[in-house]
Design a protein around this nucleic acid. Sequence first.
RNA 1: GGCGCGGUGGCGGAGAGGCUACGCAGCGGAUUGCAAAUCCGUGUACACCGGUUCAAAUCCGGUCCGCGCCUCCA
Length: 449
Amino acid sequence: MKLRIYNTLTRRKEDFTPLNPDHVTIYVCGPTVYNYAHVGNARPVVVFDLLVRLLRHDYKRVTYARNITDIDDKIIEASQESGVSISQITEKYARIYEADMAALNAGPPDLTPKATDYIDQMIAMTGTLIDKGYAYKKDGHALFSVPSMSNYGELSGRKLDEMIAGARVDVASYKKDAADFILWKPSTETQPGWDSPWGRGRPGWHLECSCMIEDNFGDTIDIHGGGLDLIFPHHENEIAQSRCAHGGIALANYWMHNGYLTVDGEKMSKSLGNFITVHDLLEEFPGRGEAIRMNLLSAHYRQPVDFSHDGIRQAQKQLDRWYRLTDGVDTDGVKVPNAVLDALRDDLNTPKALAELNSLAKKAVNDDGAASQLKVAANLFGVLEQDDWFDGIVDDSALSEMAIGKLITERAEAKKNKDFARADDIRNQLSEQGISLLDGPEGTSWERR
RNA sequence: GGCGCGGUGGCGGAGAGGCUACGCAGCGGAUUGCAAAUCCGUGUACACCGGUUCAAAUCCGGUCCGCGCCUCCA
């Protein structure tokens, strides 16, 4: 089966055909690095990581880019409030972001362009847009003239007159039209800035993505992704900039947008204060990044996922089972079963794919081949990649292995003497320390919970 | 006000005209000194009201409820 993708641009599921059959290009909007990412921010990361894994399976070559916004008013604010330099802030949080996402088995993309490395390109594109009559300068600003583009609003399905009618914000004096957006804005003495033909300033937010794509991939990429909330205005404006700069050529052929992570049905967001950072969640569930990942993939990517600790626990139980079933299996030369691949190729139907994994798990009980397939398929999913899943986290307060071993020996003695009261006593004692004893044919083993 | 998404068994969650996924939890049983794990069995749910159809959770119309975007936002 061929990969099918729901394209926001056409509002339909379409067969995916890359421009170059041997090389797929994909760009996803990344973080503005001035604080910790919350679980909602992690959703697109996990979703598109899975998509890229699938693309790599199906195509010879894939280049995946995710930008880092390291110049932005919020970063400037954070720097001024804390007295810490902008580069220190952005480097710190970019590092944390990468580590937190890696804990969810979402490795770094092939390219992670930073906005501040593309200042020249942004100045150049702004110049091009002004030259072509799609942008203008006013009071140190450069602005994109939305009415100059005939088919503005294609992606979000908005009409210009409707937008103006619904405008909730006062129109800045330097804008010719309420819908116009900033390409370049002036910086004060105390704000960071770069020299440009329009004076010292800094780029508007939408511009970096257009320039990074142009610089790394050319006019058109195959897939452009991000969260639902980026459709308007961010992606709409990216399209406007790139198409007008490139003579009308499409910026991306397929636009994909993931749904929100919600909390009690409401969007998780910083302004509502209903967020939990990935960093904190990983402390709550140490070593269980895969369970968080599974939870994020438990619903179809375009549907909302309601965040709950219980959801993560559920995912963890499923992983526990799969880890037991696949312990020590040989995966050499084993292929991912088509049932799993086809579920994913159908617009990334992860719940269906998970059902297929469970079907393999059922067979794996007495079928080594199925166990191998489960492992390989789960690996494509980005789980079952740890070999220390049951080792748990050892901290200073935890019992040493030697102490546990001693208690197990003592319990074995008690069992031999039919002193089951003492044996249960030891089980309970260890259980309180988070250690489960498992009696098997070859004696007693243990796991940390 | 404009545009859009959704309401599926106790919970999570696919599906999308007939074959009624899947997971978690529960219940009954097997096994086990106990426990875990495992195995077998067990649940006719699709917001409401009409309509189309031989057949609707799936199509059409209406109603109610929840959510989102229109401003920074993954």
